[in-house]
Amino acid sequence: MLYIKCPHCGMRSQNEFSYGGDATIKRPELGKEISDQDWDNFVYNRKSLRGKHWELWQHISGCRQWIKVERDTATHEIFKTLKANEKISL
C-alpha cells in the first residue's frame, strides 16, 4: 500500500487516489506550428524512467484535486508531492 501526502488533505492511502501518468509531459502550445514528432512525443512517447519519476495523481475519493508526486518506480518511495499548479524542480 502506498501512502501519498495530498498537499491539500495530508497523508492518505493509495486507495483514495487514481493515477494520471507522467507529469513532465507538456501539451504543445496552442496555435503554434508543430511537427508530427512533437505531437507524438506528447501523445505516445514516454521515458518511463526507472527511479525517480514525477507523475500525476488525482485525489479522487478526497478533495478531487490533481497533484504531482515524485515517486521511485523501483522502490515506490515517495519523495515529494506538489499541487498541480506548482512547478517541478528537476
Binding site: 502506498l2 486507495n15 493515477y19 507522467d22 523501483a74
Partner: peptide, 13 residues
C-alpha cells in the same frame, strides 16, 4: 497495479 513500476513485486490493493 496501475502506476509505472519496475518493482517486480505487487501491491495488495
Amino acid at each position: 497495479d496501475g502506476y509505472n513500476s519496475y518493482a517486480q513485486r505487487g501491491n495488495l490493493p
